[in-house]
């Protein structure tokens, strides 16, 4: 059984069909990168996997559990599925340590005595242990994004979703975030990424999924997909992304 099973998912916003029958499986430990033009439905699909949006038709299952906005164990489910956003979404009124430990403490995952150690552990993994007492506003964009990743890691997720996490960063800050994600990939974390970083997709992903007009247009291993795209849409997308 795949960790994530997406079956014929449809999603509309008003009259606009954003997802028109998407099916996709993601195996445990797999790194799947979703690429495609703006408006192709990539981010919406990611948000549906975390029940931030509910699907109109079809079904999404994560670890065998059906996912939808009103599901009974939604809070518990989300503790196991981390999502990192383009805009970091750190809590500006909480220091880095509290940003990381707030959810583990409030959900009862850890007690107060272990909070700082947990924060230090996940910050070390993203290379920011020295920023534990900083305010988010005192960090660069790249550092904030790494703290956002650390905040997710503190919940020990089974699956991580990344929604264009480098798009809001200055070019010189992109590398440090990708490095952290690469390290997570090596440690066997199951990851689904929406990204415009073609280099990262090519080097790190196990599989690339190209979405076009709300559908999975083409998918396969990066080497094959980049070298021999089967559809003209993917060929033109790869050419435009170079």
């Amino acid at each position: 059984m795949a960790l994530v099973e997406i079956r014929d998912v449809h999603k509309k916003f008003g009259r606009v069909d954003v997802l028109k029958g998407v099916s996709l499986d993601v195996e445990e430990g797999e790194i799947v990168t979703i690429i495609g033009r703006s408006g192709s439905g990539k981010s919406t699909l990611l948000r549906c996997i975390n029940a931030l949006e509910s699907v109109d038709a079809g079904e999404i299952r994560v670890e065998g559990q059906k996912v939808y906005a009103g599901m009974p164990d939604l809070k518990k489910f989300r503790q196991h599925v981390g999502i990192v956003f383009q805009a970091f979404n750190l809590f500006p009124h909480l220091k880095v340590e509290r940003n990381i430990t707030l959810a583990p403490l409030l959900t009862g995952r850890i007690d107060k005595a272990k909070a700082r150690a947990l924060a230090l552990d996940v910050l070390t993994r993203v290379g920011l242990a020295d920023k534990i007492d900083a305010w988010p506003e005192q960090l660069s964009g790249g550092q904030q994004q790494r703290v956002a990743i650390a905040r997710c890691l503190a919940m020990a997720p089974h699956l991580m979703l990344f929604d264009e996490v480098t798009s809001a960063l200055d070019p010189e800050l992109v590398g440090e975030v990708l490095k952290v994600m690469e390290a997570m990939a090596k440690q066997g974390m199951t990851m689904i990424l929406v990204t415009h970083e073609m280099g990262f997709a090519r080097n790190v992903a196990d599989r690339i999924v190209f979405m076009h007009q709300g559908r999975v247009w083409e998918q396969g291993p990066p080497a094959k997909l980049f070298a021999n795209p089967e559809t003209s849409e993917l060929a033109s997308f790869i050419a435009s992304a170079k």
Binding site: L52, N89, M155
Partner: peptide
Amino acid sequence: QVEAGHCLGL
């Protein structure tokens, strides 16, 4: 911000 909180299981 609200979404980020919900996504952490709060």
